[in-house]
Nucleic acid binder design. Structure first.
Length: 489
RNA sequence: GGUUUCUUGGCCGAGUGGCUAGGCAGAGGUCUGCAAAACCUUCUACGGCGGUUCGAAUCCGCCAGAAACCUCCA
């Protein structure tokens, strides 16, 4: 915790020093997926962004409780279908229990996250498991006078709320503008004021997912689950709330209103939002139908993909852009990331084999400190990566025998690369993770020794033959002045 | 229409007033039986027009183009 971390707070639109409420504890809440379909590249962005934050906070010594929800109820498909939610619709179309749909896509989401080396959160609550808590919050808001019942549904009284508290600060909205543009939503007639949003909706009899409440058999409003689950597990006031920028309005704006109305104060101290991933300059999203699922990336089964991309290539691609910038998908860019990542990982394998010398002939140049500085500057992962690439030069020069490093410098370099590459950026060397590695290492080394002898005898036919056979097995041989290097392609 | 944001070299992408990241691709070289790898060198950009300043990719104005949000969305 000797690191002074600055993060961009979306609410104040400023870079602020991060100071947790109860150090060394940090409470972090991030809006998770609605599990009615496979995760696409867009879902990888917040998952990786906040995984980076989670990992970094942990690395610098905080004890983080990371809550990321699963939305399994309460998002309406559109205005016209009188309140059928996405999961219920999927269940009806597939002739499944809604919870079967939820479980199926939750499992697949977890698998994708695991592939991307995204650590599981500390708590992963489901909206459907917290109906009681949501009802309690509605009751609190009613008791505070900021909600009213109308025909079995409960609405947030925004007009009244806005007289006492500011509304629209997070998203920069002005009430009058919003009022002028409000569309004719379902149930508009039950509302006192066009902008009032639903806290509880009375369900039609055929609605599959419904629960009893003091007002009607129905289901909770769209924004309530996050308020209920974040405050339940992190307290009435907690440190960081994250999510995609597209959730700023209305989702997070309504969360602020709900918790302020229920508790008398805001719950969130720092708001953080990741930007979108675009495809041909347009946001990648379900509603636009231009998304590529993570599964498709990993198997190459999408017409826009020229080849398969490994989970780590996708992760590295995302980390090479700052989380608050949009990042545009493209085969060329992805392949550049893939190659760059391989170079970095190869460099680290080389680093791990380097032997220390009496003294250093080259200056490490504060690479460790520079990496921390970049992370402390609102998680600037592209800069961290740039520093890691810079250091590769030193590693390769030492490997080539052109420079030397002292034991302490070498240790510092190894520590820096392992901390930042693996622990913080969360990359992993997929080739190294094989448990047969030792056997393969031994075999290949022996074979290459034989080849060395052939070379020494100028028997290039044999040496080339051995190399060709190894190449055919996917093993790349690199001759050096004295000896050889090899790696699995 | 309103609000907000963006426009960087062949591609991706950092950078908020001077020291002009990084990756990929390209070019030349060193090394090498050959190859690969590695290393060295090189390619020097900030949409347009004005303004502020000793100095602007970075600040201000206008214009052009694009996007996000305003409806579920990561």
């Amino acid at each position: 915790m000797n690191q002074a971390l600055y993060i961009h707070n979306s609410l104040t639109r400023n870079r602020e020093l991060f100071e947790p409420l109860n150090p060394p504890h940090v409470g972090l809440y991030v809006c998770g997926p609605t599990v009615y379909g496979d995760a696409h590249l867009g879902h990888a962005r917040p998952a990786i962004t906040f995984d980076l934050l989670f990992r970094y906070l942990t690395h610098i010594g905080y004890k983080v409780r990371y809550v990321r929800n699963i939305t399994d109820v309460g998002h309406l498909e559109n205005d016209a279908d009188a309140g059928e939610d996405k999961i219920a619709k999927k269940a009806r179309l597939e002739q499944l229990e809604p919870m079967e749909v939820v479980q199926y896509f939750t499992n697949r989401y977890h698998h994708n996250m695991d592939q991307l080396n995204v650590l599981p959160p500390s708590i992963e609550p489901r909206a459907s498991g917290h109906i009681i808590e949501q009802i309690q919050i509605i009751q609190k808001i009613i008791d505070a006078g900021f909600a009213y019942e109308s025909n079995g549904s409960v609405y947030f009284d925004l007009e009244k709320y806005a007289k006492k508290y500011p509304y629209g600060e997070l998203s920069g909205r002005i009430m009058d503008d919003l009022t002028a543009q409000t569309r004719d939503l379902d149930g508009q007639g039950e509302k006192h004021f066009p902008l009032d949003f639903a806290l509880w909706k009375k369900a039609a009899p055929e609605h599959i997912m419904q629960w009893p409440s003091p007002w009607s058999d129905g289901f909770p409003g769209w924004h309530l689950e996050c308020t209920a689950m974040s405050t339940k597990y992190l307290g009435d006031t907690f440190d960081i709330h994250g999510g995609g920028m597209d959730l700023l309005f209305p989702h997070h704006e309504c969360e602020i209103a709900q918790s302020t109305a229920a508790l008398g104060h805001e719950s969130v101290r720092y708001w953080m939002h990741n930007n979108m991933i675009t495809i041909n300059g347009q946001k990648m999203g379900k509603s636009l139908g231009n998304f590529i699922t993570l599964e498709e990336f990993f198997t190459g089964s999408h017409k826009l993909l020229e080849k398969t991309y490994s989970p780590m290539a996708v992760r590295f691609f995302i980390l090479q852009a700052h989380y608050r910038s949009t990042v545009d998908f493209g085969n060329e860019a992805l392949q550049a990331s893939e190659k760059g990542l391989q170079r970095l990982l190869t460099g680290i394998r080389t680093l791990d084999k380097l032997k220390p010398s009496e003294k250093s002939t080259i200056d490490l140049g504060d690479i460790e400190q520079k990496c921390y500085q970049a992370m402390n500057d609102d998680l600037n992962s592209p800069i961290v990566i740039a520093h890691l690439f810079d250091g590769l030069r030193i590693i390769n020069l030492v490997h080539d025998g052109k420079e030397t490093l002292s034991e302490s410098d070498l240790e510092q370099l190894k520590r820096t690369y392992h901390h930042f590459t693996f622990d913080i950026l969360g990359l992993k060397d997929e080739k190294q993770a094989d448990n047969q590695t030792e056997l393969v290492n031994g075999l290949v080394s022996h074979i290459l020794e034989i080849r060395q002898q052939a070379k020494a005898n100028k028997d290039f036919a044999t040496s080339d033959n051995i190399r060709n056979m190894l190449t055919a097995l996917g093993i790349e041989v690199k001759d050096r002045k004295d000896g050889f290097d090899w790696s699995i392609k």
